[in-house]
Design a protein around this nucleic acid. Structure first.
Length: 119
DNA sequence: TCTGTGACCGCTG
DNA sequence: ACAGCGGCCACAG
């Protein structure tokens, strides 16, 4: 499995401890699976999915850190690269499709592809 | 310090 | 089914 420290390069902006935890958790998600902001927040012991969104929005490591594998709790596509709609979302869709995660009208087709973090 | 903002969530009517 | 609304918490300025 990938190690976060091996992804970070000197050219990257420094990240906060919270961001570190978020990105490290992302690396646990296998290809072909996705998670939600809420699940991720709960796994991190942080009550706010919105805070997780903040961290992902500022992800300096895309696409090495698979931030595209995070969708909203209602199983919709969510945002990408700071955008909630538009070309960037299409890109996110493409990435997920390439991994075998299919959407229908911007909603996850198969809920079984949701990754549950270890307790 | 303090404040506004956000790739969100879930309860309520 | 669905829109509204308060809560959440990290972070930049």
């Amino acid at each position: 499995m990938k190690i976060l420290s091996s992804i970070i390069k000197p050219t990257h902006k420094p990240i906060t401890p919270f961001q570190w935890r978020v990105y490290a958790a992302l690396l646990l998600i296998p290809r072909g699976s996705v998670t939600t902001y809420g699940l991720l927040a709960r796994y991190l012991g942080c009550g706010s999915a919105q805070a997780v969104g903040q961290a992902l929005r500022r992800n300096p490591f895309a696409p090495d850190v698979p931030c595209h594998r995070v969708i909203t709790s209602n199983l919709c596509i969510g945002g990408f690269s700071g955008q909630r709609e538009g070309e960037q979302i299409a890109k996110k869709l493409t990435l997920l499709t390439a991994e075998g995660v299919e959407f229908h009208n911007s909603a996850l087709k198969d809920p079984r592809q949701i990754f549950h973090f270890p307790t």
